[in-house]
């Protein structure tokens, strides 16, 4: 059978995408994560007497902890199947990618298994985050010479 006929048949049978439903679930769950993060910041400021930036770090750490625990007990990926980006965009996604990779890496031992595999998924976030940050800061540095203050 020629390729064109085959491609047409494939197109006709493509599984339905639930884009509206997925978008809605992602929006709501992402929004709830924002609320959780803000509550933790307020908890940090009001109860733990932290400064604003410290409270933000506190909020991030608690969220990382929650994501790691949910990953360890095996609930995280079931939740992620439902909410998609609502979990992979917040810090939870980062924490889960490292935790799940580390847990599975244990079969190959602490060095090649856990140590290197941990960064298999999250590595590119760190790499490109740092790479772009350096470039942007250098640009800002160069802009100071034309009168743009830091």
């Amino acid at each position: 059978m020629d390729y064109t006929t085959y491609s047409e048949i494939v197109k006709n049978n493509a599984p339905k995408k639930h884009m509206v439903r997925n978008g809605f679930l992602a929006f709501v769950s992402g929004g709830l994560m924002g609320i959780l993060a803000q509550s933790l910041i307020d908890l940090g400021i009001n109860v733990l007497q932290l400064e604003k930036t410290e409270a933000m770090s506190f909020s991030a750490i608690v969220i990382v902890f929650l994501a790691a625990v949910l990953t360890m007990v095996g609930w995280y990926n079931n939740m992620a199947q439902i909410v998609g980006a609502g979990l992979f965009i917040p810090t939870t996604g980062f924490a889960n990618s490292m935790t799940s990779a580390a847990i599975e890496g244990k079969f190959e031992g602490p060095i090649f298994g856990v140590g290197t595999r941990m960064f298999a998924l999250a590595g590119s976030v760190i790499t490109y985050g740092i790479f772009s940050a350096v470039i942007l800061c250098v640009i800002r540095y160069l802009l100071t010479f034309v009168g743009v203050p830091l």
């Binding site: 995408k17 884009m19 997925n22 992602a26 929006f27 929004g31 609320i35 965009i89 985050g129």
Partner: peptide, 28 residues
Amino acid sequence: AFLVSGAFALIAQIIYDRSKLTPGHITS
């Protein structure tokens, strides 16, 4: 907080559903 965080997630979800990009690409 709800709206901003939700908006980021929504945009990411749309990209994920409409393209072949993985969460790794999108988060980067």
